[in-house]
């Protein structure tokens, strides 16, 4: 969430470009609409699913979502720019979130963050050159009893010691959770290219 005044935003994209959101994802977004009284209310889920599919929310993606939900594009930008979990620029395949709130801080969260920065070679809000990891800090992951904690993708890593960070980042399954999983909010897998959605 940001209250900083941003420059006037002029969306820039090629209106002739092929659509980013394919028929299957469009249908998945539309499935959310009957849950609410207005189509605008389905915007948060729509943005989540589009981001999961496309990696981030480009101007073109926002305009397409606006068309699908039949709302003004400015509305979509207004909402997307408020929340911290929507990425308006490309992000890594996995997002590492290190908790920086008070409980994690007094138990050593800052050292974990410093170790993440050192090992990934990037600062906060940056992405590694190979596009694998993005690093951010987060205010309270509600895992205070397990502090210091960090979230990689969907998985919460608990009681992280700085010397464990290396192993956590090296584990290919570090972002997957155990137990049940619902695909309700998932994106639809792309074929590797960011500009197309596989149907």
């Amino acid at each position: 969430m940001s209250w900083k005044t941003l420059d006037r935003h002029t969306p820039q994209f090629d209106s002739e470009a092929p659509p980013l959101i394919g028929a299957a994802l469009k249908q998945k977004i539309l499935n959310f609409v009957p849950r609410y009284e207005t189509s605008l209310a389905a915007l948060l889920p729509a943005l989540h699913m589009a981001q999961e599919t496309l990696g981030y929310l480009s101007d073109q993606a926002l305009v397409e979502i606006a068309r699908i939900l039949d709302i003004p594009p400015s509305r979509v930008l207004d909402t997307a720019s408020f929340y911290t979990h929507y990425w308006r620029k490309p992000r890594g395949r996995k997002v590492v979130m290190v908790c920086r709130s008070i409980s994690c801080e007094v138990t050593g969260g800052r050292e974990v963050l410093a170790e993440c920065k050192r090992l990934l070679g990037i600062d906060e809000h940056e992405t590694t050159p190979d596009g694998e990891y993005s690093l951010v800090t987060e205010e309270c992951l509600a895992g205070c009893d397990h502090g210091p904690c960090m979230l990689v993708g969907e998985k919460l890593h608990k009681h992280v010691r700085p010397e464990q960070v290396k192993d956590i980042l090296a584990d290919p399954n570090n972002d997957r959770i155990d137990g049940p999983r619902s695909s309700l909010y998932d994106g639809l897998k792309t074929d590797g290219k960011k500009t197309e959605t596989a149907e």
Binding site: M1, Y36, A41, T79, Y83, T84, Y185
Partner: peptide, 22 residues
Amino acid sequence: RGAGAYVCGEETGLIESLEGKR
């Protein structure tokens, strides 16, 4: 599901967010 904002824990902030707004 929310999208990362502490203020959405306030009841009217929560309602605004549910409606798809800031």
